[in-house]
Structures are given as C-alpha cells and as structure tokens.
C-alpha cells in the first residue's frame, strides 16, 4: 500500500458521510414523530438540528475538494470522492424536508388532527428504512442492496397517491379542514421527495461500484 495516508483520509471521510446519513435518517424519524405526537418541542429540536446537518455537509464538501486538489484520486478512489460529493447534496436536501415537516408541526400547534395519521407515518417508515438501506448499500458496496432499496420507492409512491386522494376527499367534505389538509399534503410530498433522494443515493452507490451512471427512478 503506497498511499496509506491518503486512504486513511478517505476512510475517515466515508465514516463522516455515514454519520451524516444516520443523522439525516434520525431527523426524518423525529420530524414525523413530532407531527404524529403533536410534539412542538421535538419539532423545534429537529429544526435547530438542521444546522448540524448543514455544517456536516460543508465540512465533508471541503474535505472532498481538498482530497481532489491535493491527492488527485483516480479510478475507484475518484469515484468514491465524487460519489460522496454528490450524496451529501441529496442528504442535505432530505434533512431540509425533515425540517419542513417539523415546521408543519409547529404551524399546527396542537390543532386536533382531522384524522388519525396512518399512511403518512407508514410512508415515513418505509422512507427512513430506504435511507438506512442506502447507507448500508454504500458501506457494503452492494449493488443488490441499492437495487432492493430503490424498489421500495414504488411503495412510497403508492402510499403517497393514497394519502393524496384521502386528504382531497376530506378537504372536499370538510372545507374547514382545508388549511390542515394542505399542510398534511405538503408533509406527504416532503416524504415522497426524501424517498426520491434516497433512490439517488442508490444510483450513486451503483456508480461508485460499477463506474456507470444509470437512472433507476422514474
């Protein structure tokens, strides 16, 4: 191993990426919990913690650019650094959506829910497992795990369509629920977007392993 120092730095970088991913997954879970449990305090924590995600993104980005400039990585090393650079952008957007969901909790401010939330937490559960699977696929350099994760996006899309129809129906029959219904539609849309970003992670893992870019999310 002639480039040990560089490879240690690369490993450190990847560990930091996984830490950022775990934080983002946690942000999503806590944001949705703040909504289902109407926990405004938790929601404020999620919103505040978004700064931590942003700081991690900046730090990882700086480290990637430093490695590119100083180490001129090639082949799989180059793919790792460029994959990390791309993935942190997706992770940062996912965290923004988590904060957006928490902001809805704050806006609703204990207003009684028009219906018990079932499909939205289910969407969030599938989506956060997608994030975890994507990170595992990254760690294991596994195309199969990435593909399995990407296929879960269909379930999220399916749930999203159902939530959309139900909320539309509620808003039609109860015009006083239009305000809250619209916020809940936003939430469903945020979660659906997070799942799309998760599929991007899977596509980047596949690129990192194979060197080929392919669009798998339609």
């Amino acid at each position: 191993m002639v480039r040990q120092t560089f490879h240690h730095e690369l490993t450190d970088l990847e560990q930091e990426l996984i830490r950022m991913g775990a934080l983002v997954e946690d942000q999503l879970r806590r944001a949705v919990r703040s909504l289902t449990e109407q926990d405004v305090v938790l929601a404020h924590q999620v919103i505040a913690d978004d700064d931590r995600v942003d700081a991690m993104e900046m730090d990882i980005e700086r480290r990637c650019l430093t490695l590119l400039a100083l180490q001129q990585p090639l082949a799989s090393d180059l793919r790792v650094v460029s994959t990390v650079l791309k993935i942190i952008t997706d992770l940062e957007r996912m965290a923004d959506h988590a904060a957006d969901i928490a902001k809805v909790t704050v806006r609703l401010n204990h207003e009684p829910l028009v219906k018990p939330l079932i499909d939205i937490p289910e969407m969030a559960r599938v989506t956060s497992s997608m994030v975890r699977l994507a990170l595992n696929a990254y760690i294991h350099r596994s195309i199969e795990e990435a593909m399995t994760m990407i296929r879960l996006d269909d379930a999220v899309d399916h749930l999203y369509a159902r939530v959309f129809r139900e909320l539309l129906e509620i808003m039609r029959s109860q015009p006083e629920a239009i305000g809250q219904g619209t916020y809940l539609l936003f939430v469903a849309n945020y979660i659906e977007r997070v799942a799309d970003h998760a599929t991007n992670l899977g596509e980047w893992v596949i690129y990192m392993v194979t060197g080929r870019r392919q669009e798998l999310n339609d």
Binding site: M1, V2, R3, F6, H7, P73, L74, A75, S76, D77
Partner: peptide
Amino acid sequence: EEFLTGRF
C-alpha cells in the same frame, strides 16, 4: 485499479 489508486 491497484496501480492507479496506489493500492499495491
């Protein structure tokens, strides 16, 4: 791969 990444 090993040559380009210095893993040899």
